[in-house]
Write a protein that binds this DNA or RNA. Structure first.
Lengths: 265, 265
DNA sequence: TGTACATCAGTGAACGCGCGTTCACTGATGTAC
DNA sequence: TGTACATCAGTGAACGCGCGTTCACTGATGTAC
């Protein structure tokens, strides 16, 4: 430990040439595999093709990944992480008080990332790969974007609760009836369908107990709707009926802001 | 033409034993291919495996389909048609005046069909198959469900227009501000994002010119949202956070009815 | 009704290619004394 | 600083399997006279 290397501060820096080479080549393998995704899809991902691309013999790849599926898992995890990082960064750049803006920034960056990495997007959110079951290790990275969205909703709930405490009755956002189901928080639009509430509290609600169920339900719906739209665009279902899906996304985000009570941007 | 066959009325009935056998075997090939979808996915669909399943030699399949891709196209077309028929039937069974009920019936039957045919659903709405481009022949069957939904929206627009003509001001559905952008029809919720209107008129609007653009935009969003939710459910993204996606769908349909101004069911 | 010919379903072999994974091996890099 | 040994990256061959598509062929079915 007394020989502190030239680049102080690089915490996980490789200590030996071997280690350095291993990292580099691991990265090259993953990069080549990612490129493969574009041509053959997740199912067509081939260790042999990756090895060929790098000028190695196919069995050499087994020094780095124990199987094709392990390589796929790495692609999944890195994909979720890249998307999550992009969304976190975009959302963090917006004024904390601008809830609608934060939500919209997150939504836009999901779409941008998807358009820049269509095949990785398809891997993350398209049809599952037959014969492959994503391991637990993917769950956490996959939750980064939902976590960002939940953060916005939690802040919205906190703000609404503060308003309800402070202000006199009648200062709540106009024209939005309180959910027939919920408590004091001004829930967005009609009440919850019977039976949904306990289910949300047992499921998604455990990730964000401070978000009231009405809001949570609409948040989940909005998240699914967002990915539905991006999938439509990337998978070609808008061809012939919607020219610029970006505008449709803006519409969706504007409607979301209204339905979720995020206030005008 | 003078030998009118036993079964009068069966218009496209096969005239010869050969023709009868051809139809039957064609059907068996498609059925075996459909079963293959479940095990290997669209990309893994294999003519040889289909032939094996039917006890034929692989080259025999070429008497029925000129290539693997042609077989895939048939699966696509039949899938869209099956889904379309299911949705049409479900929607047609509802009282014409019950717009929210018609919309909900269509939405529910999309989900039911998808759950009953998850692999066909993945073929239709999941990631595109690498190296395969869906031919024009799939466009028409693919539009059956959207057409049903547009029909509901068109009826909603007609009903609202009639109300606006007949009734005195103030009888429109309460609490829903008229879109800032549109004409006389009571558009759902806030106005359209700038730039979206001309695009809709040029695109999706050409299929249903009688539907006002505010409604059309929300209809497209709702359709994408519906498939987003079904995809989430079928592709496993709800695992751990949403137990019963059926309830979530009901919530979505209820919200849709409100947002689209379909009136209470 | 019967015969001659055309159509077409299905066979079997082959072409040329792909894949994931294992295994015994060579030779370079790293480590302990 | 130098030597002996352990680690590990990469090789090359092999196993056993898959695929789409073509082609010359046999034999049954259909049709025209």
């Amino acid at each position: 430990v007394h020989c502190a290397g030239w680049h102080a501060g690089a915490v996980n820096a490789p200590r030996t040439a071997r280690e350095r080479a291993r990292r580099e080549i691991t990265g090259e393998i993953v990069a080549a595999a990612r490129a493969q995704l574009a041509e053959a899809g997740a199912q067509g991902l081939s260790l042999r093709a990756v090895a060929r691309e790098l000028g190695m013999v196919s069995s050499a790849v087994y020094r780095y990944f124990p199987s094709r599926d392990a390589l796929l898992t790495t692609l999944l995890v890195e994909g979720y992480d890249a998307l999550g990082a992009a969304v976190e960064e975009a959302e963090a750049a917006v004024d904390r008080a601008d809830l609608a803006g934060r939500w919209a920034a997150a939504g836009r960056s999901v779409r941008s990332w998807a358009r820049e990495h269509p095949h990785e997007y398809a891997l993350l959110f398209g049809s599952p790969v037959p014969g492959y079951a994503a391991p637990r290790a993917t769950v956490d990275p996959a939750s980064r974007v939902p976590r960002v969205l939940l953060g916005v909703l939690a802040d919205a709930a906190a703000r609404d609760a503060a308003r309800a405490d402070d202000g006199p009755p009648g200062t709540e956002p106009a024209g939005r009836p309180t959910g027939s189901d919920g408590g004091a928080a001004p829930g967005p639009r009609p009440g919850l369908v019977p039976g949904l509430l306990p289910q949300l509290e047992a499921g998604a609600g455990t990730f964000a107990p401070e978000v009231p169920p009405e809001l949570l339900a609409r948040g989940v719906l909005a998240w699914a709707a967002l990915l539905g739209m991006v999938s439509f665009e990337l998978f070609g279902h808008f061809v012939g009926s919607v020219e610029d899906a970006g505008l449709l996304l803006e519409q969706q985000l504007a409607d979301n802001a209204a339905a979720l009570g995020l206030g005008a941007g």
